[in-house]
Design a protein around this nucleic acid. Structure first.
Length: 490
RNA sequence: GGGCCGGUAGCUCAGUGGUAGAGCACCUGACUUUUAAUCAGAGGGUCGCGGGUUCGAUCCCCGCCCGGCUCACCA
């Protein structure tokens, strides 16, 4: 290791401690309380001068004044002030605290709880042990660690220094726990399906590819769990869900990370309307778990997950926002003509469905701030969704939006194996025509459907994006502990 | 991939065609109720990397690397 000046100073202190018989990395720690439990019982413990032992990392400045010193320690549950008196803790340890310990070192401290004259609840230290000597110095005291790249690359340091970052990830865990609770109590079984797949499917995306050496087989990292979960509905489970990572070989921006966490669930004998109710239940529960209420504030706007969501067919939404009737303009040429006639500027696309999607993304989606379901998607954008019985160009599908961002996608699942085969064949033509995200033919999945899948509702929800909304973070990297970062030069 | 902005001490940032700056941190000393402790003093730099212009480049020019925002892609 090459050490800079500050690191070398700390390494020298470490050697001095060793020379004086102090092991800088002892094997075990002892404590009687966490800081949080000690503070909760402060009055009883202080009044009876009960000797206790706490542990934690020294955070903030050590304030050392000749024969007395103060510092704070943090054990992950709370912080507490240490109050050291030279007379009480002894010359050796007082001097060691001053000369050989540093901010960020981790210590075990023995003493009694006592309030200072300023009124701060403190541990009056009678003895101390070093638990871990640190080599790296802390960032600046006030501005702290604010460089976004450094925060993400050194998330451990970000978490030490920026306590609101810890809260984001506690919120994330609480939200996922709440999500599991809703799904478990509504009869869904949590399952795990393959990440390494011989065929990728269930979404429109380019995959990451990898290779199994001994089998000599190309494999893909999954882009969705959908096709495996539906096989399990064929297998007879009444409801299944999986919360796990998907991997999509696409661009990276503030709402896309190459690997992201998705919850997908499938409910036998349900349909897309039962999935709407489930989304409402899930979002209410997750918002409650994170914010203690069914509304959240995102970038200054209140987002309310309490009431039933707005619900609007895609054609109506586009008509209202862009003034284009996609039901009348039902082929690519007439749609593009209508767009031109309306004076709209939309990226030209190669198919009617993609053009509809583009129109929607440009003119409707940014306005979907409050929770909204957009329903009835074009069939060619939805190769796994069932058609609306009397309008076969559209599917029983919705996407869930909030703060202008897609956070969920659901449909009545296509269970007609012949229609499914035809959709795959159509997708195959798109792929041959250069659409790298077109869905692949999956013969085994068709085989499963030929054993019969009951009418089923399915839903996918992007956990990371939901957490962005619930924790008011405008960048997906703020809700992923270790977001993807470009590799640094050696 | 395009556009805009940025990369200077451990951290947060200023700055200039002529020996590199501040605050915090760190180091030395003083100090028995601090909590942005205070006071006195000292040290610390590949100015992202490579090339060019110049007597001289951290500064100007070109290329590259990395990051942020944004557009495109991506539901």
């Amino acid at each position: 290791m090459e050490l800079n000046e500050l690191q070398s100073q700390r390494a020298a202190k470490l050697e001095r401690l060793r020379t004086n018989g102090i092991e800088p990395y002892p094997t075990r720690a002892q404590r009687t309380h966490t800081i949080a439990t000690a503070l909760a019982a402060f009055d009883q413990l202080a009044d009876a001068t009960v000797p206790i032992i706490l542990t934690g990392r020294v955070v903030g400045a050590r304030r050392i004044m000749g024969k007395i010193a103060f510092a704070h320690i943090d054990d992950g549950t709370a912080t507490i002030q240490l109050w050291l008196s030279r007379a009480e803790v002894g010359d050796d340890w007082f001097q060691r605290f001053r000369d050989d310990l540093d901010t960020f070192d981790i210590v075990e401290v023995h003493g009694t709880l006592r309030r200072t004259k300023a009124g701060e609840a403190s541990l009056f230290v009678t003895a101390m042990h070093l638990l871990t000597k640190t080599i790296n110095p802390p960032p600046e005291k006030w501005a702290g660690l604010s460089d976004v790249e450094e925060r993400h690359r050194q998330r451990y340091l970000d978490l030490i220094v920026n306590h609101d970052v810890r809260e984001v990830f506690r919120a994330r865990a609480a939200a996922i726990t709440a999500m599991r609770h809703v799904l478990d109590t509504q009869g869904f079984l949590e399952v795990e399906t393959p990440v390494l797949q011989p065929l990728y499917g269930g979404a429109a995306a380019r995959p990451f590819t990898t290779y199994h050496n001994t089998l000599g087989q190309n494999l893909y990292l999954r882009i969705a769990t959908e096709l495996y979960l539906k096989r399990l509905i064929v297998g007879g489970f009444p409801g299944v869900y999986e919360i796990g990572k998907n991997f999509r070989n696409e661009g990276v921006d503030r709402s896309h990370n190459p690997e992201f966490t998705m919850m997908e669930c499938y409910q036998a004998y349900g349909d897309y309307t039962t999935m709407m109710r489930l989304v409402e239940d899930l979002m209410r529960a997750m918002c409650q778990a994170v914010n203690g209420a069914t509304s959240a504030t995102y970038q200054g706007q209140s987002i309310d997950f309490g009431p039933a969501w707005h619900c609007l067919p895609m054609a109506q939404a586009i008509s209202a926002r862009a003034g284009i009737d996609i039901v009348a303009a039902n082929d690519l040429a007439s749609l593009q003509q209508a767009i031109t006639a309306a004076g709209l500027h939309v990226e030209p696309k190669t198919t009617w469905g993609k053009q509809v999607d583009e129109l929607f993304s440009a003119y409707v989606q940014p306005h979907l701030v409050q929770p909204t379901f957009i329903t009835e998607y074009p069939v060619e954008l939805s190769p796994l969704a069932k058609r609306i019985p009397d309008r076969p160009a559209f599917t029983e599908r919705f996407e869930a939006f909030a703060v202008g961002m897609e956070i969920g996608n659901a449909f009545t699942e296509l269970n007609d194996p012949f229609d499914q085969e035809q959709r795959f064949l159509d997708q195959g033509r798109d792929f041959a025509a250069g659409d790298e995200e077109a869905h692949q033919m999956d013969v085994d999945f068709l085989n499963a459907l030929m054993y019969g899948m009951p009418p089923t509702g399915g839903l996918g929800m992007g956990i990371d994006r939901i957490l962005m909304v619930l924790t008011d973070r405008p960048n997906i990297r703020e809700v992923i502990l270790f977001p993807h970062m470009r590799q640094r030069e050696a």
